[in-house]
Design a protein around this nucleic acid. Structure first.
Lengths: 207, 207
DNA sequence: GAAATTCTTGACCATACGGTCAACGGAACG
DNA sequence: CGTTCCGTTGACCGTATGGTCAAGAATTTC
């Protein structure tokens, strides 16, 4: 389905329904583990009908992935170079944590893809994602040289933020298996922990 | 193959060969994505021969998983309750980071399993793993009440250590796509970053 | 309201995959 | 040397899966 014309109402609706269903199935089972029958069933459509809107299973998957990168990078873009460094980074941490809470399927889709070698989005990682991180690292470095941020490797700082926040979406089963209480409580605890944790680590040492 | 008798030399060797090959294939493609043909080929055996040593694909997988949990928890057991808190935890961080470097396939196998809901090791998470973490959290709490460790949630501290260290194995493709240099350099940088990062976060504030 | 276009699906196809089995090879042991 | 047991595999089976197609249903267009 190479669509040049504007989509009809039905096309728009069904493509959205399919992508939403596919997001759930792919994030639960990975690309290989997901089946078109599962996706079709979750979407409430027949399998041939799904393939009427998307040429193949792969096209559904790559459509999802490419649409997601933008969403995924948004919180990084919101960092204000004019703001107070520690608060800006803590704001970023909290936005990422909220994404883990509100968009866990999207997070697990990425996790599945990257754990298995990112065969379908490696170019996006090496392109737009790397560029965005490079810019951010430069900003962090300038904050550090101004003495407004603890002097640590900015790239690995970003990695640590991704790791600690996405952990609550990607490994939620493990978290739930170890902690008592419900998921909402876990996220509140995580927010409090990450706030005090990053605040300590990032605040420059007074000499 | 429910083996009660001691394994013959050939059995021992071939089971090991199969498990090693399966570890590579499962960690690269996940349970569903891996095929018996791939495993057999990687092991240098025919498919029926593989099934002569293991009753099914599932048995190979669960054998791998259960054998791994022990290895995975070892670094946690090495924490010395009599040691200096911050140094003990930093030692744990470094041991976990080394595991990501030296056993990336094992790390990715776990990651794949847990991201997809841990359907086959949930009981091990809720059992031995939770017990071990409970003990560790108790130790951390006692250190905190003695004022020898910053006062932060011990469970989420453990999660953060898992997340930040395993990130370098599970998401190595992403790390390599963003950083320059080779993997060895990335691990050196990571070690330095995590040391200064956790040192700052864990050292109790002097009043 | 008829023609044209879009949408939907049951039936089908080819391939891949997990697993079986009968038969053969080879070594140990009397 | 013959028996026995372990190890090995080519050929095969049933099912699942991605994808096709022709024909019919629904909707839009004039």
């Amino acid at each position: 389905m190479t669509v040049q014309q504007p989509l009809t109402r039905i096309q728009k609706r069904n493509r959205d329904v399919i992508l939403d269903a596919a997001l759930g199935v792919f994030s639960d089972y990975g690309y290989r583990g997901a089946t078109l029958d599962q996706i079709a069933h979750a979407a409430g459509l027949s399998k041939p009908n799904v393939l009427y809107y998307f040429a193949s299973k792969e096209e559904i998957y790559t459509t999802l992935l490419s649409g997601l990168l933008e969403t995924w990078l948004d919180p990084l873009r919101e960092i204000d170079p004019e703001g107070e460094p520690v608060e800006e980074i803590l704001g970023y941490v909290m936005r990422k944590l909220q994404m883990s809470r509100d968009l866990p399927r999207e997070s697990r889709l990425f996790a599945n893809e990257i754990v298995q070698g990112a065969p379908r989005i490696l170019d996006q990682i090496e392109g737009p994602l790397k560029d965005m991180v490079d810019d951010t690292a430069r900003l962090f470095r300038s904050w550090m040289s101004d003495g407004r941020l603890a002097d640590i490797d900015p790239y690995h700082l970003v990695f640590s933020i991704w790791a600690t926040t996405q952990h609550y979406a990607d490994f939620s089963v493990q978290v739930a298996g170890i902690l008592d209480g419900d998921a909402a409580t876990h996220f509140e605890q995580a927010a409090q922990f990450l706030d005090s944790f990053y605040r300590r680590a990032l605040t420059p040492t007074v000499i």
